[in-house]
Amino acid sequence: MTKELENKLREEVRNLLEKGKVDRVIGYGAGSLRFAATPLIISDKADVDRLIINPFIHNNLSVFLPDVSGKVAIVAKECDARSIISLVQNKQIPRENVYIIGVPCSGIIDLGKVEKLTGLDRDEIDDISWQGDKVTIASAGGAKEFTAQEVLADSCLGCDAGGFREFDLVIGEMKPVAADKELIRKRIKDMEAMSPAERWEFWKNEFSRCIRCYACRQICPVCFCDRCFVEETEPQWISPLPRWQDNLIFQAVRMMHVAGRCTDCGECERACPVNIPLGILTGKMEDIVEELFEYRAGMDKDAPPLMAAYQPEEAEDLIR
């Protein structure tokens, strides 16, 4: 199944490069670790066979788009494609320079979860494949079956893909992810049920682990400022030292800056080396934006950015 998709993708990409429709292609290549996929940017058709599709293509490749010149084709899952449109809405890239190749996605398999469930190292696993709604993991000790909910990445469990119409080309057939939205909504609901003091304590605790590597910012497609407020020195908004206070302010302000651009793709949480559950924040931010302004980032390329538009009457109940 994935082999078929892979061949189809390679064929299409070869075609695009040969006809000169695009100058570069952003896709996934094989990573150095077993099963891992890594971003791959190619411009030569000799490299086309390095492109892969498998259930581990987690990166949101749209983060590279503003830096890659010329006409660019990009391999995108539906969640990533929303980030691309968010970039178009915010005038970071012209729509006509991007050729979006949609790939069907059954959700990304979290290798960490697989390793935990099977007790095996990734090198000891022979094959991981989808069989309908189940995931089969084959190793020397025989094959084991797991449900999608057990092995899918957290951000995929909350998948609300569907209804996106901006693909220029779709490889194969799109189908819904066997997500478990309740499971992932529960994190936000639990947080809402706490008192303000408890919530503050929770985040204080989480952000005391932050080492301020800024991986969340670097991997975020919609964190595109040339100069980030954290690096400003006159005035200095926060200290560069990783104190929890400054870590928390950094993340809170970052979230508020990307409000209306963030598509809750889950990359910041995945990139976090100390596992701060940033998805609880991005998920809530998306909810707030939708509730207050009926706005969903990256769905309509012609809609103005959230912060560049207004309605005469809105949110007045929050104002004195």
């Binding site: 303000p196 503050w200 304590e201 928390l248 809170a252 508020m256 207050l292 912060m307 809105e314 104002i319």
Partner: peptide
């Protein structure tokens, strides 16, 4: 239109910071 933009920004800030634990 400056205050309309302020309204969007501050409405989000108020709701979001409340969620993080600011009264």
């Amino acid at each position: 239109t400056g205050n309309y933009r302020a309204r969007r920004r501050m409405a989000i800030a108020k709701k979001f910071l409340e969620y993080m634990g600011v009264e």
